[in-house]
Design a binder for these strands. Sequence first.
DNA 1: ATGATGACTAACG
DNA 2: GCGTTAGCCATCA
Length: 112
Amino acid sequence: MPSDFYQRVYSVVREIPNGRVCSYGAIAKFLGAARSSRMVGFALKQSGVLDFLPAHRVLNRNGFLSGKHAFSPPELMAELLRAEGIAVANDQVLNFKELFWDPSENLNYREF
DNA sequence: ATGATGACTAACG
DNA sequence: GCGTTAGCCATCA
């Protein structure tokens, strides 16, 4: 039984538009737990059994695929991103800055 | 309850 | 600009 924190993480990640990416810190901040960025990644790792979750669109603040090793195979993460038109090279999203999607500016806060 | 862990970040040197 | 250190805090053993 996932905690509410997890549910909130999933709710935000699910709203990430196709072809866009986000960072752990941004999600954590939006959830009001700016210092719990690590927990965001932790939640995503456990999200495998839940509904579709674009976890591959969530990267660290540098745009690196920090969580690719959690996929099977790890290359799957980069492939999923490329499948959405996102350029990936050397485990990094090239135009991360342009593709960045900030939940605090594009998603209205609501009860999760 | 205590200590270790981690898909992170920011601050130092 | 890069490697190291230190905070952070929800889980888990």
